[in-house]
């Protein structure tokens, strides 16, 4: 069934339905939207929308590779960026008024940071895991830190560096659905079918 009308709101709901209803524990879902850059006749996958759920136990991986000093410095950097983004967003939004910094002072986890920097990324003609999935019209499912670390795709290696153990890219109409988890999750047709059902639409972002 093709769903002809589609907007940002329903895209968010579909991403949420995909991982909130899953048996497996996914940390996030991202929809990479394809568009054609006219002057170069290239297909580019850019940020469409994302839903961040988080991992079950965020303390599990704490301090694995970096020193305590590095951890503190990195957290300071992340919190500073978050603080700036918060003020930019609340400056744009009319009724954002009573800003407390509680949320910013809380540790910014590796998966939160990975999700956040994903918003700045895009993939051209078959590059990166999402681009490769789109180009080959077939899903890419990478499970295990060794496989992620050994991948030719920088995004997979980056994901591994931020503690993800599974990353999946499933092509759909108009883009690619990506899911990531800090758990080991093996390929299932159930997830593919869900993506096929939820993301078979004609996009209209307004």
């Amino acid at each position: 069934e093709t769903m002809p009308f589609f907007n940002q709101e329903s895209l968010q709901q579909r991403l949420q339905a995909l991982i909130d209803g899953a048996r497996e524990s996914w940390a996030y879902a991202i929809f990479w939207q394809s568009s054609v850059v006219d002057f170069a006749s290239q297909t580019v996958l850019g940020w469409g929308d994302g839903y961040y759920k988080g991992e079950e136990d965020k303390n599990k991986r704490r301090g694995s590779s970096s020193s305590a000093a590095n951890f503190v410095a990195e957290q300071e950097h992340r919190k500073k960026v978050l603080r700036e983004l918060n003020s930019l967003i609340s400056g744009v939004q009319a009724s954002a008024g009573n800003g407390t910094d509680d949320a910013v002072d809380e540790e910014v986890t590796d998966t939160e940071w990975f999700f956040l920097i994903s918003m700045t990324q895009s993939f051209v003609n078959g590059n990166g895991l999402p681009g490769l999935a789109m180009y080959s019209s077939s899903p890419i499912w990478v499970t295990g830190t060794e496989k992620l670390a050994a991948s030719q795709c920088e995004r997979a290696r980056q994901a591994q560096g931020f503690g993800l153990q599974t990353i999946v890219c499933i092509p759909s109409a108009n883009g690619v659905v990506e899911l990531g988890s800090t758990e080991l999750i093996f390929q299932s047709s159930d997830l593919m079918n869900k993506v096929k059902y939820l993301f078979n639409f004609n996009i209209d972002m307004g």
Partner: peptide, 26 residues
């Protein structure tokens, strides 16, 4: 921020808002 596409801006606002909710409910 005005140069940031609307989709990313909306996603970012939603992410920050949900983060606040997670911290408050923790």
């Amino acid at each position: 921020l005005s140069a940031v596409p609307q989709a990313r801006k909306a996603s970012l606002a939603r992410f920050l808002e949900r983060r606040k909710e997670r911290v408050v409910s923790a």
